[in-house]
Design a protein around this nucleic acid. Structure first.
Length: 526
RNA sequence: GCUGGGUUCGUAUAACGGUUAGUACUCAAGAUUCUCAAUCUUGCAAUAGGAGUUCGAUUCUCCUACCCAGUACCA
């Protein structure tokens, strides 16, 4: 979620300014390679409608629209391997970096030793001269190690006693003293890959990136990045930075992380994700969220337009977005609000769209939905006047759509339709015990039976919800029967439950024959 | 620990230094209805604490507290 939100803000910003949104895969950590992760990311962004202008596209193919003088491709850092070494060595040559030969074991030893005296080992100006590197070793020894060993690194030589003055588009002016910073590894001989810091700066420069909008966890690295731009002499074209507050867990304790899976009761992934060890994490898509709703709610986690509007399409977000209105503090995710968003989007969908989404669910439940009633009838379906064949579970698309329009305001997800409208597709198999005791008294049943006989017999008005409703009410009222009890008894008999859709709606959709059949069935069970 | 960032109803947020501190979600009550849902109305509920600047501070400054991030040959 957090990653998608960051991508979304980048996308909105780029589109608003007529820029290009570039997807670059920063896969420089060979140890953490996860098969399928890249495809997953692209698919997730694609689902959200965040389509790159440049980079790796939704099919995993490379899209390239750079100027000829500046080839931006390739877009996977693992494929740009050859580029970084020369930049790392350039920094060494100019005195901005040095070779470090300390093994991981040696570094680990220094860390534990420092810990023993309640200190933290930092590879910096205070300690670098006590380590094994090109600053402390002779030129000959350095050359020899460079050639004979393969686990050395290039480290940035963080200058001393300097104040780095930075400007963040969201946080304003920030100053940091370089003495508090360390000598970060920029390039690793072992896999001949750069670390994020080097790769990011080099690629942003080469790819002509103008704005970097990223998570707050990068803020502490910003001074280093400033120093790198300065060391390379790229200050003039240095991108502008915006650091986003993080998405926090609902209890506010820590940032929302991938490993939280759905222990929290809501998905943290846009799409379902199966980890290497087979652990499955829920996804918003699979949970039934509309991508538009997901994008909308994500945009509002840490940003607002400044007025009371809350429903924004992607285009409207592009129009209204501004970095100035991004909130500096971390946002806790609220699952209730997420559901509300989906509900709002659901009711904005047309009956046809929702019908398309509902049909597969019905089919999965064993229903047969047909577009062409005539063909179905010749094939043996026996439709009633509404286009439903309850005995064979065959329904026309028109019937399904009429149900959708009846229930859409009661649902948060399309999947809710199943429960809400179950009895409009399948005859009730049992009756809610509590409701039956309450409404299924002999007196009520007798009244209800008479009402059924009337409405499916003598009643000769138009068989639609409005007329059925008035006719039923007038009939019951004229007999001076208790309205609520008779109505609830009817609902119980026809749907199996005392609560639900309006009785007239139910009768309208079931049709005369089915109403009689269900009521007879209900009587039998008494 | 150190460095940086942050702090307005439970949550997300609004408020040129001057407002009865607004809105949405959640929750509660009422209206409506044949029930439920929906809808409408109403309600509950906040400027972390302390100094200072100012005629006046949610807003500016400082201190404290708390929260978050970083402190990797991860991103």
């Amino acid at each position: 979620m957090g990653g998608v939100r960051t991508a979304l803000y980048n996308y909105l910003y780029a589109k608003q300014h007529g820029g290009d949104f570039i997807i670059r895969i920063e896969d420089t950590d060979s140890h953490r390679f996860v098969p399928g992760a890249e495809e997953y990311i692209i698919e997730a962004l694609n689902w959200c409608g965040i389509i790159p202008d440049e980079g790796v596209d939704s099919n995993g193919k490379v899209v390239e629209t750079p100027s000829e003088r500046h080839p931006h491709a390739p877009y996977r850092q693992s494929q740009r391997k050859g580029i970084y070494r020369e930049y790392a060595e350039l920094l060494v040559r100019e005195g901005y970096a040095y070779y470090a030969f300390d093994s991981s074991a040696e570094l680990e030893a220094r860390r534990t030793a420092a810990e023993a005296v309640k200190e933290t080992f930092i590879y910096n100006q205070a300690t670098r001269m006590t380590m094994r590197n090109s600053l402390t070793l002779s030129q000959e020894e350095t050359t020899r190690l460079l050639e004979t060993t393969t686990d050395w690194t290039v480290r940035f030589k963080m200058p001393e006693h300097q104040v780095v003055a930075m400007d963040d588009l969201i946080r304003g002016h920030i100053e940091v003293n370089t003495d508090t910073l360390d000598d970060k590894v920029l390039w690793k001989r072992a896999d001949e890959l750069p670390t994020y810091h080097l790769a990011n700066i080099v690629d942003d420069h080469l790819m002509e990136i103008t704005e970097v909008i990223r998570g707050e966890e990068w803020l502490p690295s910003l001074p280093l990045h400033y120093m790198l731009y300065k060391a390379f002499g790229w200050e003039d074209t240095m991108p502008r930075f915006a650091h986003l507050s993080l998405l926090l867990k609902p209890d506010g304790k820590g940032k929302l992380s991938k490993r939280d899976g759905d222990k929290l009761g809501f998905p943290v992934f846009p799409l379902r994700w199966t980890s290497k060890d087979g652990e499955v994490s829920r996804g918003y898509r699979e949970d039934g969220y509309f991508p538009e709703a997901f994008v909308n709610l994500l945009a509002f986690l840490g940003w607002n337009p400044g007025d009371d509007r809350e429903i924004f399409s992607m285009d409207e977000l592009v129009e209204a977005f501004s970095l100035e209105r991004i909130v500096k503090s971390g946002a806790r995710f609220n699952p209730d609000k997420a559901k509300w968003y989906n509900k709002e989007y659901l009711r904005r969908k047309s009956d046809d769209q929702l019908t398309d989404l509902f049909i597969p669910l019905l089919e999965a439940d064993g229903m047969q939905i047909v577009d062409c009633p005539v063909c179905a009838i010749t094939a043996g379906a026996e439709f009633n006047e509404t286009g439903a064949d309850f005995a064979n579970h065959i329904y026309t698309r028109d019937y399904v759509r009429s149900i959708v329009s009846l229930i859409k305001e009661r649902a948060t997800f399309v999947a809710d339709f199943r429960d809400i409208a179950s009895y409009l597709f399948v005859r009730p198999e049992n009756y809610v015990e509590k409701d039956r005791n309450k409404f299924g008294t002999p007196e009520n049943v007798a009244y209800a039976q008479e009402a059924v006989q009337y409405i499916t017999g003598a009643f000769d008005g138009p068989f639609d919800k409005e007329h059925l409703e008035t006719a039923l009410e007038e009939y019951i009222r004229s007999r001076e029967w208790p309205m609520g009890k008779v109505m609830n008894c009817l609902r119980l008999a026809l749907s199996g439950s005392g609560s639900g859709l309006g009785i007239a709606d139910i009768i309208w959709r079931l049709g005369r024959k089915e109403v009689r059949a269900r009521f007879d069935e209900f009587m039998k069970t008494l």
